[in-house]
Every structure is written in structure tokens, then in C-alpha cells.
């Protein structure tokens, strides 16, 4: 079984993010970049499935400029077998990303596609579901546990109402939530081995896709700051202020 995993290049989750001077984007000078943490979890899951003998090949795919090779090398170092970069500098929105991934999916014909539930830059949480719709495949989003059995996946999902369990036949799209697993640290041997693994570069045009973003980020600003209030000395003062000043109890 082949598993396809998409990997987005995003700012490091611990990096300090601020708007640029023009307010059109974030400050990108010297910004540390990383694999989207939710995609890293998806990748870890795919690699574990391979290690458990349930999958035979793990293919990582990223979309963007040549610099995305960095994140694909990380994916290869973690244990992906090969990588595909769909190289483009065109502006992309979630739907155009889903269309490119659909084209890669059709070319690769995996039995399972895994990806993060959202990317930590735009926090949209759209691509997996859009891809499932375009490919007319079953979906299971926000997965916290995946069990493969007899051509289907039993998936536990983190919903607002609790843990929901679904069974979906494969092929399918599954998006990873935080508690699916804890991704491994990349060992030095993995980094060395990754250098000799195949990393193919193709263009959207070669896939027959012309990306056109209809949702565009035009302005970035800091949210209004909330100012610190007062310190109270004990619970009596607290309850009195909540009653008489804030009037919330």
C-alpha cells in the first residue's frame, strides 16, 4: 500500500511572528521555517504504518518555491521513501492547493492520503476536505487514532462533542490532529540517508493544473491588545468586584 503525505513549509511554531512594515504580510527576514506540525504528525503516522508492515511506500509532496525542498528533505530524513515538489511561485489558496494535490493523487494512485488537519500559518482547515470532495473519496478529519483493517480505516476523530469513531473504505483522505502521535526526532543517519533518496520536481502545468487563487491575503495586523487589570488580595475582594464592578455574577 502506498501512502501519500502532503507537507507544507510554514514558519517555525516557536518563531515570533509580526506584521511587516507595510502590513501586507509577516516579517520574513531571518524567519526560521519548518514542516507544518500537523503534517509532521501525518508523516509520522504514515512511516509507522510502513514500519508495521501495513504500507509499502511513503511519498511526501509539497507545493511552493524551491526552498520547500528543505522540508521535503526533512520528510525523507524522517523516513519517507521519496518526495515530489510541485514547484510554483504563483499565489495559492486552499482550493488551488487541493486541485494540485488532486492531480498528484491521480498520478500516484495511493491507497491512502494523510495530511495535517490545518497549517499553522493560515489556520484554514480546508484542504483535506476539499481534496476529498474533488476526488470523490471518503474523509476522516481531526484523526486521533487510525487502525487499518481489510481495506478500510477505523478512525477516531476529535470533535467538539467528544471522540467520534468512523469506518471509511480505502482509498480515503485522513487529516491528522494533535494527539494522533508524537513525531520522532530525525536521526543523523536519517539525514545522511535522505540525501540519496529521490526528490522529483514538477510544475503545476505538467500536472495539467493552472493555479488561480480566489482568496488572497491583503492585510496583516496585530490584534487589539488586552490590558492587564488589577490584582486582588483575596477571594472576598474578588467576589465583591465581580458582583459590583464587573457585574458578571
Amino acid at each position: 500500500m502506498k501512502i501519500l503525505v502532503s507537507v507544507k513549509r510554514v514558519p517555525d511554531p516557536y518563531a515570533k511572528i509580526s506584521p511587516n512594515a507595510a502590513g501586507t504580510d509577516i516579517h520574513r527576514d531571518g524567519l526560521q521555517m519548518a514542516v507544518n506540525p500537523f503534517d509532521e504528525i501525518a508523516l509520522e503516522e504514515a512511516i509507522r504504518l510502513k514500519e508495521a508492515g501495513k504500507a509499502t511506500e511513503v511519498v511526501a509532496v509539497s507545493i511552493g518555491g524551491a526552498e520547500c525542498q528543505e522540508q521535503l528533505r526533512t520528510a525523507l530524513a524522517m523516513g519517507a521513501d521519496r518526495a515530489i515538489l510541485v514547484q510554483t511561485d504563483a499565489p495559492l489558496d486552499a482550493l488551488s492547493v487541493a486541485k494540485i494535490l488532486a492531480a498528484v493523487y491521480r498520478r500516484e494512485q495511493p491507497q491512502l492520503m494523510l495530511m495535517g488537519k490545518q497549517a499553522i500559518d493560515m489556520d484554514e482547515n480546508q484542504v483535506g476536505q476539499m481534496l476529498a470532495a474533488i476526488l470523490d473519496l471518503p474523509q476522516a478529519t481531526f484523526a486521533s487514532k487510525i487502525t487499518l483493517e481489510d481495506g478500510s480505516a477505523v478512525v477516531e476523530r476529535e470533535t467538539d462533542n467528544g471522540i467520534e469513531t468512523l469506518r471509511i473504505p480505502l482509498p480515503a483522505i485522513i487529516t491528522a490532529d494533535l494527539r494522533l502521535n508524537e513525531p520522532r526526532y530525525v536521526a543523523l543517519t536519517g539525514i545522511v540517508r535522505a540525501r540519496s533518496k529521490p526528490l522529483e520536481t514538477i510544475t503545476p502545468a505538467e500536472l495539467g493544473v493552472q493555479p488561480h487563487a480566489r482568496v488572497r491575503l491583503t492585510h496583516v495586523e496585530a490584534p487589539p491588545a488586552r490590558k492587564a487589570g488589577k490584582r486582588v488580595s483575596d477571594v472576598h475582594e474578588l467576589v465583591r468586584l465581580l458582583r459590583e464592578e464587573a457585574r458578571v455574577i
Binding site: 482550493l95 480546508q126 476536505q129 476529498a132 470532495a133 478529519t141 476523530r157 476529535e158 470533535t159 480566489r214
Partner: peptide, 23 residues
Amino acid sequence: TTTFSRDLLARVAGLLDAPMLSD
């Protein structure tokens, strides 16, 4: 915005080939 709508409406956007704005 809930897990119900995030799961469902992005799939609807894919079916309708419609742009989507989240949250």
C-alpha cells in the same frame, strides 16, 4: 465555526468549486 462545520463545509466548497473563508 465548529468541528461539525469545518469538516463539512470545506467539503461543500470542494463540491461547489467555491472559495472558502474559515472562522
